[in-house]
Simulated scan of single mutants.
Amino acid sequence: MLGSRRSSTESDTTGRSGGELRVYPRGRTEEEWRETLTDEEFRVLRRAGTERAFTGEYTDNHDVGVYSCRACGTELFRSEQKFDSHCGWPSFFSPLAGDRIEEIRDTTMGMVRTEVRCAACGSHLGHVFEGEGYDTPTDLRYCINSVSMRFEPA
Protein backbone atom coordinates (compact mmCIF):
# COMPACT_ATOMS: atom_id res chain seq x y z
CA MET A 1 0.00 0.00 0.00
CA LEU A 2 0.97 3.65 -0.23
CA GLY A 3 2.94 5.16 2.63
CA SER A 4 2.48 4.20 6.26
CA ARG A 5 -1.25 4.72 6.66
CA ARG A 6 -3.57 2.02 8.01
CA SER A 7 -4.20 -0.52 5.33
CA SER A 8 -5.71 -3.90 4.74
CA THR A 9 -5.71 -6.17 1.73
CA GLU A 10 -8.95 -6.16 -0.22
CA SER A 11 -12.38 -5.18 0.97
CA ASP A 12 -15.95 -4.80 -0.11
CA THR A 13 -18.33 -2.00 0.88
CA THR A 14 -19.66 -3.80 3.97
CA GLY A 15 -16.39 -3.83 5.88
CA ARG A 16 -15.24 -7.29 4.89
CA SER A 17 -11.52 -7.46 4.38
CA GLY A 18 -9.70 -10.59 3.34
CA GLY A 19 -12.81 -12.59 4.24
CA GLU A 20 -13.01 -11.17 7.77
CA LEU A 21 -15.58 -8.68 9.02
CA ARG A 22 -13.91 -5.44 10.12
CA VAL A 23 -15.21 -3.66 13.20
CA TYR A 24 -14.90 0.12 13.24
CA PRO A 25 -14.90 2.18 16.46
CA ARG A 26 -17.72 4.42 15.21
CA GLY A 27 -19.51 1.80 13.18
CA ARG A 28 -23.29 1.44 12.97
CA THR A 29 -25.69 -1.01 11.41
CA GLU A 30 -26.72 -0.41 7.81
CA GLU A 31 -30.22 0.48 9.08
CA GLU A 32 -28.75 3.13 11.41
CA TRP A 33 -26.69 4.57 8.53
CA ARG A 34 -29.81 4.73 6.33
CA GLU A 35 -31.62 6.68 9.06
CA THR A 36 -28.82 9.24 9.54
CA LEU A 37 -27.58 9.77 5.96
CA THR A 38 -29.34 11.16 2.90
CA ASP A 39 -29.80 8.78 -0.04
CA GLU A 40 -26.80 10.30 -1.85
CA GLU A 41 -24.61 10.21 1.27
CA PHE A 42 -25.55 6.56 1.83
CA ARG A 43 -24.82 5.66 -1.81
CA VAL A 44 -21.33 7.19 -1.66
CA LEU A 45 -20.30 6.60 1.96
CA ARG A 46 -21.76 3.13 2.51
CA ARG A 47 -21.90 1.72 -1.05
CA ALA A 48 -18.63 3.19 -2.39
CA GLY A 49 -20.38 5.33 -4.96
CA THR A 50 -18.91 8.42 -6.62
CA GLU A 51 -20.45 11.82 -7.08
CA ARG A 52 -20.34 13.28 -10.58
CA ALA A 53 -17.17 15.21 -11.41
CA PHE A 54 -17.22 18.99 -10.90
CA THR A 55 -20.50 18.87 -8.93
CA GLY A 56 -19.28 18.60 -5.32
CA GLU A 57 -19.59 21.56 -2.96
CA TYR A 58 -15.88 21.48 -1.98
CA THR A 59 -14.24 20.97 -5.37
CA ASP A 60 -13.36 24.65 -5.67
CA ASN A 61 -13.34 25.53 -1.97
CA HIS A 62 -10.22 27.52 -1.01
CA ASP A 63 -11.23 28.54 2.52
CA VAL A 64 -9.00 27.64 5.47
CA GLY A 65 -10.32 24.92 7.74
CA VAL A 66 -10.73 21.21 8.39
CA TYR A 67 -12.56 18.53 6.39
CA SER A 68 -14.23 15.81 8.49
CA CYS A 69 -16.01 12.56 7.71
CA ARG A 70 -19.65 13.39 6.99
CA ALA A 71 -20.78 10.12 8.57
CA CYS A 72 -18.97 10.21 11.93
CA GLY A 73 -17.22 13.59 12.27
CA THR A 74 -13.63 12.34 12.37
CA GLU A 75 -11.24 15.06 11.17
CA LEU A 76 -9.57 13.82 7.98
CA PHE A 77 -7.88 16.59 5.97
CA ARG A 78 -6.80 20.21 6.43
CA SER A 79 -7.13 22.91 3.80
CA GLU A 80 -3.33 23.34 3.81
CA GLN A 81 -3.04 19.90 2.15
CA LYS A 82 -5.72 20.63 -0.49
CA PHE A 83 -4.59 21.46 -4.02
CA ASP A 84 -6.14 22.13 -7.43
CA SER A 85 -5.75 18.95 -9.46
CA HIS A 86 -8.49 19.92 -11.92
CA CYS A 87 -9.82 16.34 -11.78
CA GLY A 88 -13.37 17.27 -10.71
CA TRP A 89 -13.14 16.27 -7.04
CA PRO A 90 -11.44 17.80 -4.01
CA SER A 91 -7.80 16.68 -3.94
CA PHE A 92 -5.38 16.49 -1.03
CA PHE A 93 -1.72 15.46 -0.97
CA SER A 94 -1.85 14.11 2.61
CA PRO A 95 -4.41 13.20 5.28
CA LEU A 96 -4.50 15.04 8.61
CA ALA A 97 -2.92 11.95 10.23
CA GLY A 98 -2.21 8.52 8.79
CA ASP A 99 -4.36 6.74 11.34
CA ARG A 100 -7.46 8.73 10.29
CA ILE A 101 -7.82 6.85 7.01
CA GLU A 102 -7.65 3.29 5.81
CA GLU A 103 -6.37 2.33 2.37
CA ILE A 104 -7.77 -0.76 0.70
CA ARG A 105 -6.90 -2.45 -2.58
CA ASP A 106 -9.88 -1.94 -4.90
CA THR A 107 -10.24 -4.18 -7.96
CA THR A 108 -13.68 -2.98 -9.06
CA MET A 109 -14.30 -1.25 -12.40
CA GLY A 110 -11.77 -3.51 -14.17
CA MET A 111 -8.69 -1.83 -12.66
CA VAL A 112 -6.57 -1.81 -9.53
CA ARG A 113 -6.91 1.30 -7.38
CA THR A 114 -6.54 2.19 -3.73
CA GLU A 115 -9.78 3.02 -1.94
CA VAL A 116 -9.71 5.49 0.95
CA ARG A 117 -12.05 4.95 3.91
CA CYS A 118 -12.55 6.66 7.23
CA ALA A 119 -10.67 4.53 9.77
CA ALA A 120 -13.22 5.36 12.49
CA CYS A 121 -16.44 4.30 10.74
CA GLY A 122 -15.39 2.54 7.52
CA SER A 123 -17.16 5.00 5.24
CA HIS A 124 -15.94 5.31 1.64
CA LEU A 125 -14.25 8.64 0.97
CA GLY A 126 -12.71 8.19 -2.47
CA HIS A 127 -9.39 6.91 -3.86
CA VAL A 128 -5.71 7.79 -3.63
CA PHE A 129 -3.39 7.83 -6.63
CA GLU A 130 0.39 8.22 -6.75
CA GLY A 131 2.97 9.09 -9.34
CA GLU A 132 0.81 11.43 -11.39
CA GLY A 133 3.41 14.20 -11.41
CA TYR A 134 1.62 16.87 -9.39
CA ASP A 135 3.93 19.42 -7.78
CA THR A 136 3.08 18.41 -4.21
CA PRO A 137 5.29 17.24 -1.32
CA THR A 138 4.05 13.63 -1.50
CA ASP A 139 3.19 13.01 -5.18
CA LEU A 140 -0.11 11.59 -3.90
CA ARG A 141 -3.62 12.69 -4.88
CA TYR A 142 -6.36 11.83 -2.42
CA CYS A 143 -9.37 12.21 -4.69
CA ILE A 144 -12.24 12.61 -2.21
CA ASN A 145 -15.98 12.97 -2.77
CA SER A 146 -17.38 16.24 -1.37
CA VAL A 147 -20.45 14.35 -0.14
CA SER A 148 -18.13 12.25 2.06
CA MET A 149 -16.95 15.30 4.01
CA ARG A 150 -18.08 18.33 5.97
CA PHE A 151 -15.97 21.48 6.01
CA GLU A 152 -15.44 23.52 9.18
CA PRO A 153 -13.87 26.93 8.51
CA ALA A 154 -10.99 28.00 10.79
Rank of each mutant, 00 (worst) to 15 (best):
R52L: 08
G73S: 11
H86F: 06
A48K: 12
G126K: 08
S123R: 05
R100S: 09
G98A: 03
E132H: 12
I101Q: 01
G110L: 15
G49L: 08
E75G: 10
H124W: 13
G49H: 14
E41M: 08
H86R: 15
G110W: 07
P90A: 00
Y134L: 06
S85M: 00
E57F: 11
E103Y: 04
P90V: 00
G122R: 04
E130R: 15
R26N: 15
W89R: 06
P25F: 09
L45M: 09
R105H: 13
A48E: 14
Y134Q: 03
C87Y: 02
G122D: 10
R100K: 15
D39G: 12
T114C: 15
V64K: 15
D106A: 14
R105M: 10
D60K: 10
P95V: 05
D63K: 14
R78K: 02
E40V: 05
W89D: 00
E32A: 11
C118M: 06
E132R: 10
A53F: 05
N61T: 08
G110K: 14
D99F: 00
F92Y: 02
I101K: 02
S94R: 14
D60Q: 11
E115I: 10
T36L: 13
G73K: 04
T114K: 07
T38R: 13
R113C: 15
G65I: 13
E51A: 13
E102C: 06
M111H: 07
W89V: 01
Y67R: 00
C72D: 08
S68R: 06
F83H: 07
E103K: 07
R47N: 10
A71H: 08
Y67S: 00
R113T: 12
G98H: 08
I104L: 15
C87E: 01
E75K: 03
R46H: 05
E35L: 11
E31F: 02
F83G: 03
V44I: 14
E115F: 12
E35Q: 14
R78D: 06
G98C: 04
E30I: 06
R78L: 00
F92D: 01
G27A: 02
V128P: 09
D63F: 07
C87V: 08
T114R: 12
E51K: 10
Y134C: 05
C121K: 13
M111V: 10
T108F: 10
G122P: 11
F77A: 05
Y58H: 08
E115P: 03
N61R: 14
H86Y: 15
H124P: 08
E132N: 03
C69R: 01
L45P: 03
S123Q: 09
E75S: 10
A53E: 10
L96G: 02
T38V: 09
R113E: 09
G133H: 14
D106L: 11
